[in-house]
Design a protein around this nucleic acid. Structure first.
Lengths: 144, 144
DNA sequence: AGTGAAAGTGATATACG
DNA sequence: CGTATATCACTTTCACT
């Protein structure tokens, strides 16, 4: 991991679909060198993948919500398995503190939200916070 | 938005860096048709961009945290401006409820966390939850 | 809106500083 | 670990359906 790799990561976080030639021009090396460095970072696990950012509103979801869950005794494990099956869940973390889980979900409408929360009620207490706006949009992670 | 576009979005959410030819084979149309459809979805705002997923641990960040903020009177606006300048913030939402803000941050170590929270103390009360593990990993958004 | 073919550009493998 | 070159694949444009 040197300065060039950091620049490559920056490029890929800005636009993962640009060519290796374009990246090479920005970082000052040739395209085969870019290709080789990217492959190494993929193999080493630094580069986990490349995903399209999609507007959930334009795809028919009226809102996003942050739902936190405080699991009942013995219900965390079954929850961790069940949660994998829900399409609504965009992201889910296990966290420290009184609450065990925080997740980001997309929902078509109020009925959809109501139904989704009903599914969770057997696993624990939930807290739902509707997303009003995105203040910081998927900021690039810089080398520490 | 038809079935083919939905399949294209699915491909791009699985691997945004695959070629249009590869996508075309999976969805059953030619590569120029894929290219045209992608361009239209980019122009219409459905496709917002393509980003590399990066392992924050491998980049030198020992942990992730979810920090929620309950802003003091008149401090929300200055916070919304200031937060844009912090490299630690990967994602930040304004939300409904008692707390106004929830954000996902990456941190090098305990000292870094302490320093970051100190920066926020002037804007409001914070609650910090350390991420233990990622239960659901950047799930693809399906058409509603 | 999709296909097929031509031309331009990018990726990949190999040889070599 | 890098570049340079050559071959192969992909993207883009355009005429046609």
């Amino acid at each position: 991991m040197d300065l060039i790799n950091n620049k490559i990561l920056k490029c890929l976080q800005e636009n993962a679909r640009q060519s290796n030639v374009a990246i090479g021009k920005q970082v000052g090396i040739s395209s085969p060198a870019v290709s080789e460095r990217i492959k190494k970072m993929e193999d080493s696990g630094i580069l986990e993948g490349y995903i399209a950012q999609i507007s959930s509103l334009d795809l028919g979801y009226q809102f996003k919500a942050i739902i936190t869950l405080r699991a009942f005794m013995g219900k965390l494990k079954p929850f961790l398995e069940k949660i994998q099956t829900y399409d609504e869940v965009v992201n889910c973390y296990r966290i420290t503190g009184n609450e065990n889980i925080v997740m980001e979900v997309v929902l078509r409408n109020q009925k959809h939200l109501e139904g989704f929360i009903d599914n969770l009620i057997v696993y624990g207490e939930t807290k739902t916070q509707i997303v009003l706006s995105q203040v910081v949009k998927q900021n690039a992670i810089k080398p520490a």
